[in-house]
Design a protein around this nucleic acid. Structure first.
Lengths: 339, 339
DNA sequence: ACTTTTTACGAAACCGTTTTCGTTAATTAT
DNA sequence: ATAATTAACGAAAACGGTTTCGTAAAAAGT
């Protein structure tokens, strides 16, 4: 049933070479021969074997997708889902399919990403950052396989990375608080050791200083970007003596958790100002609609694809790009409104 | 830099065959030789080429992932994201990686899924159903490649499918309405030609009859499972003479859209009873928290993986399994509450 | 000490393509 | 009519592995 190039060749009365040339659009094959062979291929539903092709050529037209770190273990964080969706669309248009590496440890304990990429001989890969990034990711970075990092700083010669301007993210949030009259501002970060969390914290402290606001260390807490952690952290804060009236959470999910904690504690969410980050679709629908600092997920995915493409085609050396965030004002800064 | 088996063999002073046997855990190789070769492999970071391996063996350890139809074009519908996430986890534990086919048309217009699967020689594939499923999907179904369908009815000898019991879904919703005193019940389906939408409508009409309720055809509308369509459809309904007081939407996203439409129209959402379907994470956080019929996404993904595995290992013939839905009561049936 | 069995290994064919380079036949130039 | 060019095709060596089968040496049996 499964035809090989050899059989097609025999059927058509030509050599393998000729069939192969037809497949690959070589010039030196006659029009009638080409037509005849194509018909035979069509008739038998022949498709060249990918394995054989990528063994012979050195190109696979496959991009490896790596979710590094714990956050992404399930690759279902809304932010990254949208980024990868956009990435996939753009790469798809270039003829690439995406290979998602399962991060379950199986087989050998020493299995690492570089090995997997070499094994599959992917043309390039995208690495989605997170907290607790496995060190083996950096072996990949150092290799000659083109890599594009999202929210992770890659430094290899054939790598690049892209992320939102995270200091700006915090600036936008704090600025808004300030203009709304808030002065007692807290911060909920993601995992303490994650890059973007650090950058946002740094930006936070910097902008607070700029506005002459003092940062209360008791109001700086860390979650893990997911909702439960926001709930967790906020619940604790609510038990303290001093409670911040305004809160910037490093993800919408955590902001949502915090809001829930406020409600559950019997407080009125109206008395608080909350700003989230990401602008996931849900944030528009929650109660109250969440004011948030939007990351342009669509653009990040698309740019990641463009850069990776250039990296693969050697049109580009190591590049880092930052994407502008944008403040989306909704209704979760109610306390300020009342002022 | 990139080592081949031949070079390893030379370095170790053995034949290729021996090295290959070591890689594949053959019995007939001496202990010291094995040790020596393994060390050399380790030292040079050697990894067998995937292409060469899967050309020689006939197995790829890769599963194709196909998002059929329009709904999933961006593979970012929260329901399917969670299903696939769970699927990935389970398959990953079995040593499979996932290949996501880009659904952008590129290259040849006649490119179809079967061709892609044959091309990559995947061990099996998962097909995520939707509306407007491309006919080429059924060629794949008919082939001898093991397929598991989610929300799509596959009939091939080496296929199976899994979905929530959709008639039960509607029953749960209508039952709840009934118990809450609602009698004027409307239905918002997904795309009219999608399987699950049809099944839910069928279940809806059946259960309405059971309860002796008449279904008003003006209250049966169709969207596309996404939020905007829910908004759209609800807005129109609100302009009509008769307006249903209770509404079952075939997806949480559409329910959210409908709620927004109600609010925007100046009506009080308290005057309506809304039930959604899926139980995506956002539904817990919206205003009001959405009562919904939950699909067990985790279980569906896991079962899909199990079935596919059995299909691949020929431990199973064609199978269809239905998963029980569950009603999650929250606060979006407020009108009933007031009764 | 001699046969039989077992152990450890290698030669070589094969998996299904691509690609280089050479060759012949047809075409064009002179 | 002859030489030079071009067009169309094929032989065969790669690509990097796996696997069958044969064989020499070592171990075991007698």
């Amino acid at each position: 049933m499964k035809m090989t190039i050899k059989e097609i060749a025999k059927l058509a009365g030509v050599s393998q070479a000729t069939v192969s040339k037809i497949i690959n659009n070589y010039e030196d094959v006659g029009a009638k021969t080409k037509k005849r062979v194509l018909e035979i291929m069509e008739e038998h539903g022949y498709r060249p074997s990918y394995s054989a092709q990528s063994l012979a050529k050195k190109v696979t037209k496959v991009i490896g997708v790596i979710y590094a770190g714990k956050i992404n273990a399930n690759f279902n964080h809304p932010f990254f889902v949208d980024v990868v969706s956009s990435f996939k669309k753009t790469m798809g248009a270039e003829g690439y399919d995406l290979l998602f590496f399962s991060n379950e440890k199986f087989h050998k304990a020493d299995e690492n990403y570089l090995a997997r990429c070499q094994h599959y001989n992917v043309d390039g890969c995208i690495i989605i950052g997170g907290d607790q990034v496995e060190p083996s990711v950096y072996d990949l970075d150092k290799s000659d396989i083109p890599c594009i990092g999202v929210d992770i700083q890659l430094e290899g010669k054939t790598s690049g990375y892209i992320m939102t301007d995270n200091e700006k993210v915090s600036s936008l949030a704090v600025e808004h608080f300030y203009l709304m009259g808030q002065r007692e501002i807290g911060f909920i970060g993601g995992k303490e050791n994650s890059l973007i969390s650090e950058q946002r914290l740094e930006g936070f402290e910097k902008i607070m200083k700029t506005y002459g606001l003092s940062v209360n260390q008791n109001w700086i807490k860390f979650g893990d970007f997911f909702e439960d952690s926001g709930y967790q952290v906020m619940s604790e804060m609510l038990k303290e003596h001093e409670i911040p009236k305004a809160l910037f959470a490093a993800s919408d999910l955590m902001a949502m958790g915090a809001i829930k904690a406020i409600k559950d504690s019997g407080n009125s969410v109206q008395d608080f100002s909350i700003i989230g980050c990401d602008d996931i679709t849900a944030s528009r629908h929650i109660d109250p609609p969440l004011t948030t600092v939007k990351q342009d997920k669509e653009k990040i995915g698309k740019m990641a694809a463009y850069i990776l493409n250039d990296l693969i085609n050697k049109n580009l050396q190591h590049t880092a790009v930052k994407i502008e965030p944008e403040l989306i004002v909704r209704e979760s800064c109610g306390a300020a409104k009342k002022v």
